[in-house]
Design a binder for these strands. Sequence first.
DNA 1: CCGAGCTGGTTCACACGTCAACCAGTCGCT
DNA 2: AGCGACTGGTTGACGTGTGAACCAGCTCGG
Lengths: 159, 159
Amino acid sequence: MDEPRWLDEREERAWRGLMAMQVDLAEFLDRRLRTRSGLSGADYEVLAHLSEAPEGCVRPFVLGRHLRWEKGRLSQHLGRMERRGLVTRDPCPTDQRGAIVAITPRGRGLIEAAAPQHVADAREAVVDHLTPDQLEALAAIGETVRARLAALDERRAEP
Amino acid sequence: MDEPRWLDEREERAWRGLMAMQVDLAEFLDRRLRTRSGLSGADYEVLAHLSEAPEGCVRPFVLGRHLRWEKGRLSQHLGRMERRGLVTRDPCPTDQRGAIVAITPRGRGLIEAAAPQHVADAREAVVDHLTPDQLEALAAIGETVRARLAALDERRAEP
DNA sequence: CCGAGCTGGTTCACACGTCAACCAGTCGCT
DNA sequence: AGCGACTGGTTGACGTGTGAACCAGCTCGG
């Protein structure tokens, strides 16, 4: 276990580049979203899902599965969004313990205004400045890494 | 402004891949660090910088510049780290208003144990599973994106 | 039909980040 | 020397994420 195998120069550049890009990009996107639309990244994801759902309403646990959020987080975030009038929560008629979240007109208005802006941000920061080859490479890398992480997660789940 | 220009399929794959990888990877690294070393990502970065400094001590504002953290954040985080005995804060002899942060033996022990683990995590999740070409591509992409973000930031700074 | 266990949700305590206000010490200009 | 601007740092309010405890309703085997 005391055989570190440090990164060589190429690996170091790639790794540091990835980490730095990750931080800067997340910060940029979140700030843009927040200042232009008054939404956080989390708000955006919730509203995006909700706006695509038929009738604009979903059971929270379904939302949680898609977003891969813990239920506590989701519950709290929905509470805040409800307070801001982006979303409503009503008791579910078919399951007495459950709820049903619906997007409000206000929420829909915000997400519909925010979405094109967000895409423009993605273009401005990343997409429009990479070559087709780089886009392909990025997609492949994302694929690979996510597969690795999923495998590592599974192995942890069933010892 | 109502000309969205949505992403085509290639762009969409790359963008979604990047976003998903970003979330999963951050979560993975942070969890590994936390469960194996009891350190958060933020702790790790602070201790890494401190352990590389001569004498193991630095002025907070220097630390802040390198990490690109806001000063409030840094101050609070150092407070928490001090409470946990990872770090000490003493008044600076040459500047009466300032402080000087030093890593404790306990902090040094933790970071020295954590660092090889962290590199191993980086390998396990990413580095070891990409080809040299992909590593090059990743470095170049990171470079490009960071340059873009820096340019966008500058433009905001001086209208 | 009834109790054990599961599931959907909420809540609490805590760690963390941002922003703005604030304080004291330092610097620069006259 | 003195005053205003700047700088290093702390603090408080608030939004957000994690983990665990908790509760009510559902479900399934005996």
